[in-house]
Simulated scan of single mutants.
Amino acid sequence: MHSLRFGALLVAVLSVARHGAAAPPPSPPPSSRGVIALGGPSFNGYYPAMDIPPQAKSNVWAVSGGGSHSMAIYGPERRVIEWPRIDDSGWPGSPPLPNNTYRDQPPNLTNVTAIAAGQSHSLALRKNGRVVMWNQRLTGDNRTDYLPNFITRANIKAISAAKGGGTFSMFLLSNGSVLEWPPRNYSEIYSGNFTTWIVPRPHALLMSGNVKAIAAGYEHCLALLKNGTVVAWGGKRGMTEAGISAQFKSVQVPAAAQANVTAIAAGMAHSLALLKNGTVVAWGRLLGGFSGATCAAIGCGGAPPPPGGPNGVPYAALSGVKAISAGKTTAVALLTGGRVFVWGQTSAGLVVTNIPPEAQSGVVGIGSGSIWWMAIK
């Protein structure tokens, strides 16, 4: 049960649909297989990513993290548990949400093969190829907060949801084409003349049937083609030139990701690709180590290890990587032997790059939220 094949199958159904189609494993995972996590947004000292509910402590198939909540598929019936529950009261200190922007988790939701936690919404893909969405806090408009019929009735094989501030989702259809909802106008300019920082959606390519995996970033999208090539589009339409520049770089796919790519992941302003040889390629915002202020506050003691490759990829992620995931400003890798490795910016007063002993071996699946990561062991 601990074979690499089974581990790969578990990773395949993680939230961001890193590996394309998510076929369910042939048998339930061991009852001892649960979720471990580090990091998470803090509200008066409460870290929701680490407050793991009983349902996610055994029989776990897959995990996903969003902007402020986590999800897991658990049990022989492949049900969904999320924590903490996103309700119509919003987070502490935030105003109540309009009633028409909130919907509870569907009752009797079973046979789920993939999940995707967004900024404030949740997606579940069922074995029959149908996808459902709930806990919406997107546009505040019922017309777009509900998934339209052409998505809910489609045969979907992979899903991905933007987090860390993003408010859209991606859907990979069984025919190899890609949809987004709510639809976005990539020529739109929010502030100033930022047209040069936006890459249009390649409609013809995404409708060609050649896509096998998708990943949603904060304001950019990735698609992995069947020939092992990565395509990127979108880009941040923000207020500062530095932020826009980082987002724009996240869609400038380097030559190293134009062949032999097996998995993709997208963060707030960075992109990741996993090659067949176990190497990670990163582009976009440079994922440094600890920020000075955070490091001083927690006494992390010493600088992070020097980068080993392009765009700050550490030496540990240049070989032996089995799976990848991306948080808001972090990158997560699953290494040979089931060891979790994390690099990037620290947030919320926690050094998420410090891996606890229980995540240094035997891990079979990974996932990440905006400022935390999770592992299945």
Rank of each mutant, 00 (worst) to 15 (best):
V231N: 05
P200V: 05
E219A: 11
I264D: 00
R184D: 00
S177E: 12
P182F: 01
S169Q: 11
R184K: 15
N210T: 13
L224Y: 10
A242Q: 14
K212L: 07
S169E: 10
K212N: 08
S250L: 04
A242I: 13
I198V: 09
I264L: 02
I244F: 11
N193I: 08
E188L: 13
V253Q: 04
A215K: 03
Y190R: 15
F194A: 11
P183S: 14
V199M: 10
E241Y: 10
G228N: 03
Q258G: 14
A216F: 06
G234K: 02
S191L: 15
T167Q: 12
K226V: 12
G176V: 00
A204G: 10
A204T: 12
K226N: 15
E188P: 00
A246Q: 12
E241Q: 13
Y186F: 15
F171R: 03
Q252I: 06
S250I: 01
G192Y: 09
A216R: 09
T195C: 06
K212F: 03
Q258K: 12
H220P: 00
K236H: 13
W197N: 07
P200Y: 04
L206V: 06
S250Q: 03
M239L: 15
I198K: 14
I214P: 07
Y218E: 15
C221K: 07
S169K: 05
A246F: 10
S187H: 14
M207H: 11
P200T: 06
L224Q: 07
F168C: 01
I198F: 10
L222M: 05
T262H: 02
L224A: 06
K212P: 04
V178N: 04
S187T: 15
A255P: 02
A216P: 00
G238S: 12
F171L: 07
I198C: 09
A232C: 09
T229M: 07
L172G: 00
Y190I: 12
Y218I: 08
N185Q: 08
G238L: 08
F168A: 03
G217L: 04
A259S: 15
A257K: 07
P200F: 02
A256P: 04
H220Y: 01
A216Y: 08
V230H: 01
K249T: 09
A257T: 05
T240Q: 10
N185P: 03
E180F: 08
W197I: 06
S250T: 06
K249C: 07
N193Q: 14
N227F: 04
G243V: 08
E219P: 01
W181R: 06
A223N: 03
L172H: 02
V251E: 05
N193Y: 10
L205Q: 11
G209P: 05
I198W: 06
W181P: 08
